[in-house]
Design a protein around this nucleic acid. Structure first.
Lengths: 282, 282
DNA sequence: CGGTCGATTGAAAGCACTCAATCGGGGTGG
DNA sequence: CCACCCCGATTGAGTGCTTTCAATCGACCG
């Protein structure tokens, strides 16, 4: 049953320090979270790095599933395609995120995954990872949490697509990015959109034109500032209100600051659990 | 680390035969799939049954997470609520389906789960289940497949909500039910809708009126017959075409039968992988 | 300095929603 | 046993949000 922990891939791809998870800035967010130094090293030993150029595939629908991928550097999008040829982006992954978990059940990838920019991933051979699970229950438990978070993230997308207007969807998208970047130590109010308007629209079940209009609307209302891909969130509290399904459009511009502050306070009260990856809360 | 396999709950709730997974008609679909007799018994020992009356909660948002639940009898829906009070149904579970996996990451339930009819579940204490994982890698691997399927199922919902018209959404819903019932040995063309029109509409990001109209439309086109909750799929191939994102409305009624047959043949060709739980394929 | 691709903006159309009235089955009480 | 009520479902008319179509703008690049 147990597969010996040996490396069956070139060892010279990267220096050993680079392949050490404990030296990775994302190790608190990624798979090694909670592992001690020894355990982290065991995990590191089955991992190999791989560069993915912008717009190229990490994997494609139907590819045999051999490994999970953790984003080290860059961003990815995952999307599926139906028989009519329509694409639907169902995920946006950034550093520390895990890709490919939907392929476990069928042993084939269910999505296409492409790099939004020049990126780098950790290749985690799945058979070896499962072997590690039996030896490291801590790792196994954390993996279950990661998969659970993936489920929650998709439930949030479902909430957005099933229940919200264009403005709310886009606000939820921005708040989600904000929260995830904050978790990674980046600015929660200033970041680059890695997706094109078209991708964002596809992701949110809208058209590129609608995204443009929502950007114009939020900017006009003083909630955001956008220059090309560069975004600044000027009123995160108001955006969170929108993302929570509340309509602030009928609030006069002057009182937005006040209500936003109140909202921020109230916002934290009835909330059951804050999910780091949540699109609709956080 | 390891928790001794002892029962710390009343043993008299049900007869021991009832708690034996191997005697359950869903054991091929549910968690014990792939386990031998001995392993199945080990799993059975940590499971206890629980009845859930119609319209009552299996769990609520914020409840501490202690166990997963496998549906033995009946149907459930899961839904979340945003701060504005809007609900979004994000799952429909039937016998053999597992509930509660989204709660693993935060140790609190992320959804409300209510019974659509008088139902019965297997309570699977999660801490004990994880202990079993370390002793039974087969069980662990299957659990990962189950979680992976959950992810795929939600990706399919995302595809539906993000990309499809009302008619296609409803067709996809019917095809999904058809496939899942077939997998359980029930008729793929004749079944009861356990959800109200309102629930179906909420699940599909539509209103109750739209569902009514789509039922009328599909019925008029001869694809389905509906009486109250009783549904019969008269042209499953055409429904699958619709669910795959293709529009068959401009096809003349007479030629539908022909094109449907052709579609059925073509349908199976380019398809990457058929997922049993898939809403959009299968 | 064009060329290209992404983004913006406007006008018109379409699909689903909202509002409202009606229908109909199932349960209850007289 | 029937009348009534209640709630889910159906159907129609009008509205509205988003899409579609089209033109223009603008940044990046060779």
């Amino acid at each position: 049953m147990k597969i010996p922990l040996q490396l069956n891939f070139p060892l010279v791809l990267e220096s050993s320090t680079l392949r050490n998870c404990s030296g990775c800035s994302m190790h608190q967010i990624c798979l090694p979270a909670g592992l001690n130094e020894h355990q982290t090293r065991l995990l590191s030993q089955i991992v190999v790095h791989k560069k993915i150029a912008k717009d190229s595939y990490l994997y494609r629908i139907g590819d045999p599933f051999t490994a999970l991928y953790a984003v080290r550097v860059g961003h990815f999008k995952t999307y599926q395609e139906n028989l009519a040829g329509n694409r639907q982006i169902n995920g946006l992954q950034m550093s520390g995120d895990l890709l490919g978990m939907d392929a476990i059940s069928s042993a084939r990838h269910q999505c296409d995954a492409t790099a939004l920019e020049d990126s780098e991933v950790c290749v985690i051979p799945y058979a070896q990872l499962e072997t590690l699970f039996t030896e490291m229950p801590i790792l196994m438990r954390h993996f279950h949490r990661v998969m659970s978070k993936e489920i929650i993230g998709e439930q949030d997308v479902i909430m957005i697509l099933g229940n919200m207007y264009a403005e709310q969807r886009f606000a939820a998208f921005l708040v989600n990015l904000s929260t995830r970047y904050a978790l990674r130590g980046y600015s929660p109010t200033r970041f680059q959109l890695r997706m094109t308007r078209e991708d964002i629209g596809n992701y949110l079940g809208l058209t590129i034109e609608s995204i443009s209009r929502m950007i114009a609307k939020l900017r006009k209302n003083g909630l955001i500032e956008v220059r090309q891909r560069d975004v600044e969130l000027l009123d995160l509290a108001a955006l969170k209100k929108l993302a929570a399904g509340m309509d602030i459009s009928d609030t006069s511009p002057i009182s937005i600051c006040v209500t936003s502050a109140e909202a921020e306070a109230n916002y934290l009260l009835p909330q059951p659990v804050q999910q780091p990856y949540s699109l609709i809360q956080g």
